[in-house]
Design a protein around this nucleic acid. Structure first.
Lengths: 165, 165
DNA sequence: GACCTGAGTACAAGAAAGTAAACCTAGCGG
DNA sequence: CCGCTAGGTTTACTTTCTTGTACTCAGGTC
């Protein structure tokens, strides 16, 4: 990745989508909660069992994820049991899949268990395994070295060095 | 995303590439440091200026990233100045690009600044803007709803409920 | 030889986040 | 109507992070 122009030292760093995403999902456990739910675990106590994280943190993370529309709660009732609630991933939550699968892919490549990856993702429709890729609008595969970073419409500089009037 | 089989309640969660990746880059500031370096900021004091994070944390994050081979230090010398060191991203670091651009993409979609994104990434070779996509080996574009999660070679169950001999 | 700059290290004090474990509450089954 | 279970709260404690200053060290400038 290389900057196309100088995004450099007077750039206003407060408008950053990466930072804003991390505000929502950057805390410890948050992405792992999401992972578990993707993997099919949906109830509070099961999540707690799988993750081994403190219950209050789990509760807090779930609340935040629901608040941000990444998860939703559903109530359901099994025969002869009282109604329960469980968590499901929304479309907004599913849009985090590229990012999370990107982390998974990196871990598989560089920090894998000797035995290999614990899970493998496939395309439901054709059975082939998945990769996360950066693509351009003309559908070229774009390796990181060919990424060019440039200013967008929300680009700002901070405290433009204007002289006193 | 849906599990193909029950990865469920007796799954051994210690073999997880997502968790292992987050051990390296999951702390506060780490991915933002990487962002700055991708954006062309490479010197300690400049990184400090841009991020506004405590110097000791910046030093610690940089050390860890270098330790893990995501960054490397280079020394360089400008005319008539003494030699300095700066940080550059390695190939291993560049492999985090899909994950980080995935976070960026999500932020652009759901938490954008009113003015729009601060940066836009293009394909250097053709100028077209980028997206991060999940693709299968047969090159289908795979939306999250078509991702099927199954056990891999490193899949383990924990404390298999074996009877006493 | 005194001072400046870049690249850190060292320390202290307070705030925030994370951890551990006990406690609470609503239904159901007996 | 007692206890069990799922789904949380509360409270106490520990670790990290933040804020902010001070110090080091090397090479170059004045």
């Amino acid at each position: 990745m290389a900057p196309i122009t100088d995004l450099r030292l007077d750039r206003d760093t407060t408008n950053c989508s990466i930072a804003r995403t991390l505000e929502v999902v950057g805390e410890k456990w948050t992405l792992l909660v999401l992972r578990e739910i993707w993997y099919g675990v949906s109830r509070f106590s099961d999540l707690h069992k799988m993750l081994g994280c403190p219950r209050n943190l789990l509760a807090e993370r779930l609340r935040k994820l629901v608040e941000h529309g990444i998860l939703a709660t559903e109530t359901y009732q099994e025969d002869g049991a009282r109604s329960r609630s469980r968590y499901v991933v929304t479309a907004k939550g599913n849009d985090l899949a590229p990012a999370v699968l990107g982390l998974l892919q990196w871990g598989d490549k560089y920090r894998a268990d000797p035995a290999g990856p614990a899970v493998i993702n496939h395309h439901r429709d054709c059975g082939a395994p998945l990769t996360v890729q950066v693509r351009c609008a003309r559908d070229h595969h774009v390796p990181a070295a060919e990424v060019e970073v440039g200013p967008g419409p929300g680009f700002r500089t901070k405290a433009a060095p204007e002289r006193a009037t």
